[in-house]
Simulated assay, not measured.
Amino acid sequence: MISAGIDIGSRTIKLVLIEDGTVTDSATTDTGFQPMTRAREILDTSGMTPHRIMATGYGRTLFEQQMQADTVTEIKACAAGTFHLYPEVSTILDIGGQDVKVIRVGKKGRVVKFEMNDRCAAGTGKFLEIMSDNLGFQLSTFGDAALAAEKTIEVSSMCTVFAESEVTSLLAKGEEPVHIARGLHDSVVRRAASMIRRVGLDGPLCFVGGVAKNPCIRALLAETLGTEVVVPESPQTVVALGAALLADAMR
């Protein structure tokens, strides 16, 4: 019996399939301008017909209306997926395309506290994408470049619009793009670390979401928080995994 978890995010759609408690397949695609069409396509491409589908993410309500599916919040799905992978972890940082979430879990992965920033792009994947473009970097190499920087130029604004203006001003003054890049990464980590401290951190931090692939963010988090930062092999599909596990538990 196959269960599916589908995470319909603002930037990407992630699918995880589980059969008899074991992950059998996963896939990721861009959300695009027609998220429901893309969601159906990713399900069709899998070649599987799930017995039960659990949807999460920004598009979960629309998906529920158009498909036979249950829904769950991203917070609960993220906690379930992380607990499955790292039952010893009690604090999770999830930085996605449009929001930042910090989740504190208790016994059996139960959510006990969380904090979320979804009101602006500050500190999100979208913020890093815009800044990398402004500085002339590919997003895929932005983190590596920032990590290798020998100097940090502080960027004080976290608002995307104001940060763009500040970056333009710094470039006009002759500052090196790579040094500005390091400063932008520092600002993202400072914001995330502040949220983590408010939620609470005891032991290693699990870092999930697409931004968890950024090596500079990972390194700066470990340095700033003074703790181990664990990153799953596929950090962007952890929420979909949690949704699939929750669907599987309903059999």
Rank of each mutant, 00 (worst) to 15 (best):
G183S: 04
D144W: 01
T152A: 10
L147S: 07
A219M: 04
A149S: 14
A172L: 15
A219F: 00
Q236E: 15
A146K: 02
E150I: 07
L220P: 04
G174P: 14
L201W: 15
V161W: 06
V188D: 10
H179V: 03
G174S: 08
K173W: 11
P215V: 11
T152Y: 09
K173F: 05
D186G: 08
V211I: 02
L201Q: 08
K173R: 15
F142V: 08
C159I: 09
T141P: 09
L205N: 14
I180D: 05
L201K: 02
E233Q: 12
S234P: 03
E223H: 13
T152M: 12
V178S: 13
G183R: 01
Q138R: 15
A163I: 12
F142E: 11
G209T: 12
F162L: 13
V189G: 05
T237K: 02
S156P: 00
E233H: 13
L220E: 11
A212H: 03
P215W: 03
V161E: 01
F207L: 14
R197H: 13
I153K: 03
M195Q: 03
D186H: 12
V238R: 01
D248K: 03
M195I: 11
A193Y: 15
D186I: 00
H185L: 11
G242A: 04
A244L: 04
G203Q: 06
C206P: 00
R197T: 10
L139N: 08
S234Q: 11
L201A: 04
R182N: 09
A222Q: 09
V230Y: 00
E228P: 08
K151R: 15
V155H: 06
E175H: 13
S165Q: 04
R198F: 04
V161A: 06
A222P: 14
L221Q: 08
A244C: 06
M195F: 15
A146T: 02
A240H: 04
R197E: 15
I196M: 12
N214F: 00
S165I: 06
R182F: 02
